[in-house]
Each structure stands twice: as C-alpha cells, then as structure tokens.
Design a protein around this nucleic acid. Structure first.
Length: 211
DNA sequence: GGTAAGATCAGC
DNA sequence: CTGATCTTACCA
C-alpha cells in the first residue's frame, strides 16, 4: 500500500476538528494542534509537528498587532479559518485562525511530517527532495500542500476549499517542547513555539545557547 | 510617491 | 552567510 492509499483508506475515519477547538487562545490551541493532520482533498496530508502562536494586539510580532488591514483581515474573523500570507517576495505561509471575531490571533504551521500522497507533495516542491525537506518549514509545507493566497479564508471546519485539519486518534505529545519563536525580530522572548520532541521533521533543531 | 522590512529558503 | 524577489505598511 502506498501513501496515497493510506490516506484514501484511513481519511474517512478521521474526525475534522470542530469550530470550538479553534475558538480559544492560540497559546492553548497551538500545542494541541501537534500530531493533528493537515490535509487536502487530493490525499496530500501531513502530521503537524511544529507550530507557533501569534497573539494579536498584545503581540508585536503578529501581523495583526497594529489592527485590521487588507492582508490580515482573515485573522480578525472567527476561528477555524485559514490565514495565508505572502512574504519575502516568493513564499506562502499558513495559519489556523483562533479565538473569536476581532481577536486577530492564530497559529502558524511551521512543520509537518508527510503522511499522505507524498509523491504529489514532492512534485509540488519541485523535484527530488528528501522526505524531511518536504514539510520542514512554514513555506515548504505550504508549497507541498498547494496552499496559496487562493486558500486565504478557507473554512477548515466546513472544508469549503479542500483543506481541513483532522484528528486521526494520535494525541498531542505530553512532553511537547516550548521555546522562542523563529524568524521574528520583536517579542522574541515569548516561548510561543511548540514542537514534538526529538522529531526529525521540525524546521530547526532547538538552538543551543552560546556560552 | 518612496522606502525599509519581512512569521523564508536554497545554495555556497 | 548571503542573494533572491516583491508585497505590505508606513511616512510624506
């Protein structure tokens, strides 16, 4: 059985996360998203192994910090939708919007472990790539899953655009690692990044202090 | 209208 | 470590 078959066979049993899951503080939702499955309707699927919380008006590193704009509008909507943004002139990245209308909070997907239709993801990534390079980074996983601005605002609960998040029965790790977020220049000290311990598919190894 | 920075990645 | 590449947001 190849990976595509795995997704086709098991997917129907997976339970799509309900709206209530998202309507909470992103610092609560983020660690609970670990080991959940982010998937497309073509069978492409990845287990979420690394996430970061962004906390709206109280978080200088969040896109929503300075209030509603055209780009971050989806973040200020109700939880359970996908917020997709374009950055560095070439990369798409995706978040699960959390909280309630007006909060502007969400969780950035930083790494997935490919588990379904892996060959389609490899192709989407542009050629021969090691499995660990398919989804180990926010822009990499978005490219692997075919997530672009066309999916900004997609409803992860209703699955209105072929993207959703499901629970396949794997619980979140009891010993998730928390630490500072990556690639930001403000609010760098908040430990709002979580990942599955000792997992080969996280975007970076935990940084050792220089000293 | 001009510009600096950006929730990144691939290749040296 | 650095270049790529362009949108966004902010200032004037």
């Amino acid at each position: 059985m190849n990976n595509f078959d795995v997704a086709k066979t098991i997917e129907p049993r997976w339970r799509t996360l309900p709206r209530a899951f998202y309507r909470r503080d992103p610092r609560v939702v983020a660690p609970e998203l670990l080991n959940k499955v982010l998937l497309r309707d073509d069978g492409r699927a990845g287990r979420i192994v690394e996430v970061e919380a962004y906390c709206g008006l109280e978080d200088p590193a969040a896109h929503s910090y300075r209030g509603l704009t055209r780009r971050n509008a989806v973040m200020f909507g109700p939880g359970g939708h996908l917020y997709v943004y374009f950055t560095y002139g070439m990369h798409w990245c995706a978040n699960a919007v959390c909280g309630d209308v007006g909060n502007g909070v969400g969780v950035l997907f930083r790494a997935i472990e490919p588990i379904g239709n892996i060959e389609a993801m490899r192709v989407a990534r542009g050629g021969p790539t090691r499995d660990r390079d398919i989804g180990s980074g926010p822009a990499r996983l978005a490219q692997a899953l075919g997530i672009t601005g066309a999916l900004d605002g997609a409803d992860l609960v209703r699955n209105d655009r072929g993207v959703r998040i499901a629970d396949d029965g794997t619980p979140p790790p009891a010993d998730a690692i928390a630490g500072p977020r990556i690639g930001i220049s403000k609010a760098v000290d908040h430990p709002w990044r979580w990942h599955v311990p000792a997992h080969g598919h996280v975007s970076r190894r935990p940084s050792r202090s220089a000293g």
